[in-house]
């Protein structure tokens, strides 16, 4: 008994990392001020609606169509980015070729470019008479002012996330692992599937989650190329703006609440998945 006590007090007194209380306090205060307070305001404002009113606002057909578009296209864009981001990161890490640094820098461009500029540029390219659109149109593929246009914009703005999360992990990946797998008789695809992918998966999921989160909230680049046709190419953030322009603040926050809850649930799910894959790899988190 006596010994246990001493141990406990020792572990309390000698903390190796200093400033636990200060940093935790600061973190919580900062998070409350910057994130939680505004979000709470959204919920508060929504609470001014009755349940029936709330339900009417969030289940209006136009709004429901926008959920489908926003979340569906965001997930699709994140999935596309996960695949091609991995490919891009792979090329950047594994091979050396002329212009590699330039391409590496280009990856970050969607971060830096004002989203409206991206939207206008993409619209100009993919419109029926645009540089790319003029060739796609005869094939029956219309991009601008269609759901497909939304996807293109979301893929564009989400590209850096997967590349930048996967790249460092890939750089750290020991080529000896692949050599060991090859010496044990594994073929290229098996090495990728059983040795490389499991190690990359947590980072890939993080990149996916970031790209998805960014895509759900994206407004600037999408509204130009989407054309905003009701029931076809309206995204949820646009519905919120529309309500705001009509001075329907409670209606706007009601839709915002739905977005928040769904996004949060999806992110939680992805994080859970990530923790699960990480624990399967024998790492503690």
């Amino acid at each position: 008994m006596h010994w246990e006590r001493q141990d406990m007090s020792a572990s309390r007194t000698f903390r190796v990392l200093p400033g636990f209380r200060l940093t935790l306090g600061y973190t919580l205060a900062y998070l409350s001020l910057i994130v939680l307070l505004p979000l709470a305001a959204v919920f508060l404002k929504t609470a001014s609606l009755s349940i029936a009113e709330f339900w009417n606002v969030i289940s209006a057909p136009r709004v429901v169509a926008s959920y489908k578009l926003s979340f569906g296209m965001s997930l699709a864009a994140a999935a596309i980015n996960a695949m091609f981001g991995l490919l891009l990161a792979w090329s950047l890490v594994r091979y050396s070729f002329p212009g590699k640094r330039v391409i590496d820098a280009l990856v970050d461009l969607p971060f830096a470019l004002p989203t409206a500029v991206a939207g206008i540029a993409l619209t100009a390219l993919y419109a029926k008479n645009g540089r790319i659109g003029q060739y796609l149109d005869p094939l029956g593929i219309q991009v601008a002012f269609k759901p497909l246009g939304v996807l293109v914009a979301l893929v564009f703005i989400g590209l850096p996330f997967v590349v930048r999360t996967v790249q460092p992990i890939l750089e750290d990946l020991d080529t000896e692992l692949e050599e060991a797998a090859a010496s044990l008789g594994a073929r290229r695809w098996q090495i990728f599937r059983h040795v490389i992918l499991p190690v990359l998966l947590p980072a890939l999921l993080t990149g996916f989650a970031l790209a998805f989160a960014r895509a759900v909230g994206e407004y600037g680049s999408v509204i130009f190329i989407a054309g905003n046709i009701p029931m076809v190419s309206e995204i949820t953030p646009l519905m919120i703006i529309t309500k705001l322009e009509q001075y329907d603040y409670a209606g706007a926050t009601a839709i915002a609440v739905v977005m928040l809850v769904v996004s949060f649930a999806l992110l939680l799910l992805i994080n859970g998945l990530q923790a699960w894959t990480a624990s399967r790899t024998g790492r503690e988190r």
């Binding site: 020991d174 000896e176 692992l177 050599e179 060991a180 797998a181 090859a182 010496s183 044990l184 008789g185 594994a186 073929r187 059983h194 040795v195 499991p198 190690v199 399967r280 790899t281 024998g282 790492r283």
Partner: peptide, 22 residues
């Protein structure tokens, strides 16, 4: 002959174990 067909067992200095596998 490719390494996977040579039927050689190779042991690395830093083990090169697959850390995501038991």
């Amino acid at each position: 002959t490719h390494v996977r067909e040579r039927q050689v067992g190779f042991v690395f200095q830093h083990y090169a174990l697959f850390r995501h596998m038991s």
